[in-house]
Design a protein around this nucleic acid. Sequence first.
RNA 1: GUGGACGUAGCUCAGCUGGUAGAGCACCCGGUUGUGGUCCGGGAUGUCGCGGGUUCGAGCCCCGUCGUUCACCCCA
Length: 416
Amino acid sequence: MGGQKIQAPKGVSEYVPPRSRLFDFVRECLIAPAKLAGYQLVELPVFEATELFIRGVGESTDVVSKEMYTFTDRGDRSITLRPEGTAGAMRAVIEHGLDRGQLPIKIWYSGQYFRAERPQAGRYRQFYQVGIEAIGLDDPAIDAEVIAIADAGFKAIGLKKYHLELTSLGDAPSRARHRIDFLTYIATLDLDEATASRTGINPLRLFDDKRPEIKQAMVKAPLLMDYLSDTSRAHFDQVKVYLDSMGISYELNPRMVRGLDYYTGTTFEFVHDLLGAQSGIGGGGRYDGLMKELGGQELSGIGFGLGVDRALLAAEAEGVISKQAFVSDLFIIPLGHGAMVMALAIATKLRMSGKIVDIAFGDRSLKGSMKAADKSGARNVIVLGDAEITSHSMEVKNMSTGVSTSVTIDSLNDAL
RNA sequence: GUGGACGUAGCUCAGCUGGUAGAGCACCCGGUUGUGGUCCGGGAUGUCGCGGGUUCGAGCCCCGUCGUUCACCCCA
């Protein structure tokens, strides 16, 4: 009986050949700069106690209040599929006592995250992010390094049409002083109900509203940037100096809004120009109160999350990554069972020395196998038959030049 | 979550005012005996997303549902 076709759950991003190859490339590009800078891997669970995100990310955020995949497990615990990486990373740092060693703690991670939003291109219910965290250092230089690492990842992919937006959310005193004036200002605005309620939760959201009339009304709103304390300002100025010295261009966006409550001080976002509404390809910032909030010591931190799915979309939009197929060093065509024994042995040996070797399986015609070799992108082909088995020598055909050269089985490795 | 568009072979799509499906690409085989890329010939492939309804008859009409997509919202 034929079963019903089962589809993947709504809104998940998945990658299969040939595109999975590009996904892999993009992800590696994004991770590599962190490894080169001494960040170390952490592998963390995709589900955590719900409480972690409520306290870490913030109950008032949309992410926590309406986008989490939360369920009760068999032990009656409330569990949530991670909607972001920083809270879990902090939890792990505290739990494993990493903060008792040398500072800063520099870690990187990569994996899937979950948010129950309405899907759209570049916005998925399960998506991929790579991230890093540098914990336990107030030095503005680490802010600059973190930003530079993210930028290096995008550059490694070959992305050009993106820009970096930068701002500072200041420290607690800065925000407190700004809030007074800001609330006074928006009290003078005539807002519809939905907007007003959103504003009640996080007033800064208004800066992000795309409606022209709201944008117009917000032109004269007091900017947090103008309320920075001396220490916050000095820190931010120094970050800019370091970025300038590294040749990383950015634009100040004092109206930038982040959806996670833990951000403080230096905050940034990478925006791609060709991506439509879901244009943020990465973002991050300082979260100086997070560790303590989660029951650890009072250590500051900064990190980022980069969207692998969106970076891939951006790369495709810019046309910067080649769709080059799998390329092997050698394609072996065995003729008959005896030849297959030999082919398997040769392939195993060559692979151990790092050669990429493919074999023609099944009983296709020689012509069909040659076509398969051609399409696979193999650089060289050998045909194994009775003659080769007895003589232990064979013709290596170079697929781009069409030239064949005769080699013995022992010198095959060198001939490739 | 709100509003709009779309859903036909693996892919991109066509299908006239309703009469039980087509193209290109890809794929497979062959063009004589063990060597590919071009060319020629041949071939396989679709519960027309799914479920109802209207009709003598629906891929084309109606309703529902699932999925995708665009904008809002949100953000990676």
